[in-house]
Write a protein that binds this DNA or RNA. Sequence first.
DNA 1: ATCGGCTCGCGCAA
DNA 2: TGCGCGAAGCCGAT
Length: 536
Amino acid sequence: MASIEQRKWEVREGEPGPGPVVYWMQREQRAADNFGLLYAQSRARELKRPLGAIFCLVDSFLGAGMRQFAFMLRGLEETEEKLRRKNIPFFLLRGDPGKEIPRFVKKCQAALLVGDFNPLRLPLTWQKKVARAVTVPFDEIDSHNIVPCRIASDKQEYAAYTFRPKIHKLLPDFLKKPPTLKKHPINWPGSTDIPVYGPSSRPSPHRQECLCYTADGSTDIPVCGPSSRPSPHRQECLCYTAEGSTDIPVCGPSSRPSPHRQECLCYTAEGSTDIPVCVSVDWEKALASLKVDSSIGEVDWIKPGEKAARARLKKFIKEKLARYPEDRNDPNLDGQSGLSPYLHFGQLSPLRAALEVRNSSAPKEAKEAFLEELIVRRELSDNFCFYQPKYDRVEGFPEWAKKNAAGHRSDRREYIYTPKQLEAAGTHDDLWNAAQTELVVRGTIPGYLRMYWGKKILEWSESAEQALATAIDLNDRYQLDGRDSNGYAGVAWAVGGVHDRPWPSRPVFGKVRYMNYNGCRRKFNVKAFIFRAMKK
DNA sequence: ATCGGCTCGCGCAA
DNA sequence: TGCGCGAAGCCGAT
């Protein structure tokens, strides 16, 4: 019953161009189980057109630093390779997506544009800008939610209990194995006047701009690729061995033109000194060129990419799923899946995860507990951000909580810490400091403790507004999967009672649910957690 | 250890 | 209009 069509939302109508179908990859950074890509491919096959994927790398994104950008780019590098094997070239664009995506679409005279769904404000403004600038049909496919956000509900849900029945009703339609991506039958062409090239068996009219070299001393192997030494064209010349060849592409410095020039399929950037838009991306160069906060470094407990994501999913199902309902709330037991960075960057399909969990041999209650988190609560976050544009402001809180925040503005605070003190884990509370240290060092806080972390920021800030801003800032900068609707919904829950209910009133919190140190002591070995966190 | 009360409002049954 | 119940709790009584 459910087809890819059901995940589609028409961003704009338009007149199809004569060129290829273009898939604009945004949140769904994977080749497998990607409905946007699958939809783009089915349209391309239907129209007998080539298919290409583009990703626009921005210079800054909601406080993300090297930790997050590196995880993303290393994942994209793997995805580029997977797509290449499917005869789908991958282009890394740089700059403002609102400008670069339309420019690319025009350049290759795209038939149509297919993009991802992302409920956050900035990506939505990009989508609007692109929709205004292109003339071709532009469709959005929600491949981040098992039940597409726009279909699950047409309004902001009040709580999980109002959302759950809607999801469960639609789940049988959407919890189905996705089709597999096929090797694309039509090659990417050289476009008509602006020199953009890709793997192709057809000669390009702009071959003369494509410079390919053989290695020094090498006799006949075509040597292509990014060079470390600058040359007029070299850095723009990124090559492949011939399609179908089993030769490994070899790169090396040389000044001699290659006799295998016909195997070198390149482009030059549009007469500018911009970093070239390449079929084969120089990922290290892209990473090095980023001007983002590099003081927040990469983490070593999780490897980026589709392959690592699938491996972690398998390992979780095999080793942890059965104990998930009990172990997930004990920060000492590492009982959670650790999949959320993969889900955040789209390196893992939530549908894939749900199907593998459902088909596993774990106890029914364990599967249900995990699927509740993966589907109902995760997708409720997208619902919150999409239908509540002020998802990161007190104005986005429910009515009772907004009044609440106003009414307790002048309550005396026993402790007040500045954002800097909080960031430095310099509070009187050793458990909170340990949680903050985990965030800084590992880029994540165990689930239960994350709630405590947020609640205390509310308690120790001078206002709810300040608490919300601090929690979001710390989450966006340090959390590996920060800047995610789950993060905004989670913080709004802790600070603003979003998706929660009112509780007995008390100072500072008012009717927002309170949590304390004793509650943690009842649930897990606090000292053991602090010891482990501080040792690392 | 377990339980009820706290407190608001959504959505469904009637 | 009435009524049950909810994103993971706290607290005091038993």
